[in-house]
Design a protein around this nucleic acid. Structure first.
Length: 350
DNA sequence: AAACCGGGGAC
DNA sequence: GTCCCAGGTTT
């Protein structure tokens, strides 16, 4: 995919930011890497209005990376309580300790370095470095993806690797050499306030005159939706867990096809009567039948709903066909088993 | 209920 | 490297 940058992009965005951008949010004062970092993590998951009080409480308790690193995890999580995504708070806490231990509490100077910290990827690293240090590193968050996919009427889903790569290239080519932090902030503001998912305000947009998405007549066609993955068909089966004095009965699968050559449990049609079918197929006498919990196993192109049935039986030590064999549980678990079969056997209490 | 979200982690 | 998930929110 090839996308050609257009002229005069950043100046228009920056000029719009001068007039309409937000400049008085708490994290826009004293823009240290630490303060910008915390704000970016909070803003990844939550809107500005909600974040503000959380941010202020957080900064009051953990004013710098040393305070955060020294804090108890429970205390950090308490300050996060209500924001959700607690893994991000745990990552932040871990990253703070990494910064103190490995970097004397200073953020690395390179994007790659910042990306080493847990919870910080390429885009968040770029936001931190551009806003706090004025470095020329481009972000590509949801806002920027929306702006770029509309401005260029990008016809493919941004989740595709090649689309995403092309968008990163565009993002970097538009990042100016001056006012890098303002530009990053401007792009986020543009996406959040004008170029919104629905009802974009094109008439107020500094990019309207050559925005291919607007010119197409319907900017909300972009970014194009994720292709509906024709949801996988669901198949159903019953697996027989025959248990006798000789162990558990396994069936060797044919060499080719699904689970080729593996030892599996005998299967019967989902609607078949378990006792009837079992007595027809196997020379056994059934003492009891117990349904085990049903569960789903997913393959690349379908789901398999498995209903395991446990049967206590009396039987001879051989079934009469080579492909069937009794194994004790330990032997069975040492075999090559399909994952769902292993799951069933591991959950068995004999 | 369906899309979306950045990063982590499995493969 | 690539794909998919966890754990949420917004539309």
């Amino acid at each position: 995919m090839e996308l050609t940058p257009k002229a005069d992009f950043a100046p228009r965005v920056l000029n719009w930011f001068n007039q309409h951008g937000r400049k008085n949010l708490p994290w826009q004062q004293d823009k240290t890497p630490y303060r910008v970092w915390i704000s970016e993590i909070m803003l990844q998951q939550t809107q500005v209005a909600t974040v503000i009080p959380y941010y202020q409480r957080f900064m009051a308790s953990f004013p710098d990376v040393f305070a955060l690193a020294a804090a108890e995890q429970d205390d950090v999580l308490a300050h996060w309580s209500g924001l959700g995504y607690y893994a991000r708070a745990r990552n932040m806490h871990k990253a703070a300790q990494q910064l103190v231990n490995d970097w004397d509490g200073e953020f690395p100077q390179t994007q790659e370095g910042v990306c080493e910290l847990p919870g910080i990827g390429r885009s968040t690293a770029a936001a931190i470095l551009s806003i706090s240090r004025g470095q020329q590193t481009a972000i590509l968050d949801g806002n920027v993806k929306r702006v770029l996919s509309r401005y260029h009427a990008i016809p493919t889903w941004p989740g595709e690797k090649k689309t995403e790569n092309a968008m990163w290239q565009l993002a970097e080519s538009y990042m100016p050499a001056e006012r890098c932090g303002d530009y990053t902030q401007a792009m986020m503001d543009l996406g959040a306030t004008l170029c919104t998912r629905s009802k974009p305000q094109c008439l107020l947009c500094p990019l309207q005159r050559d925005c291919d998405g607007r010119i197409s007549g319907d900017p909300t066609l972009f970014p194009v939706k994720k292709p509906k993955k024709a949801d996988k068909p669901v198949k159903h089966t019953q697996m027989l867990v025959l248990i006798s004095d000789h162990g558990i009965l396994l069936e060797k699968r044919p060499a080719t096809g699904i689970w080729g050559g593996l030892w599996s449990l005998p299967e019967i049609d989902n609607h078949a009567d378990v006792a009837l079918e079992t007595e027809q197929r196997f020379p056994v006498s059934i003492d009891s039948v117990t349904p085990l919990p049903q569960f789903r196993h997913t393959f690349s192109h379908y789901h398999l709903e498995i209903r395991p049935q446990r049967l206590e039986v009396q039987a001879n030590d051989t079934i009469g066909e080579d492909k069937y064999q009794w194994f004790n549980l330990e032997q069975a678990l040492s075999l090559g088993l399909p994952a769902p079969v292993r799951t069933i056997l591991e959950g068995l209490t004999l």
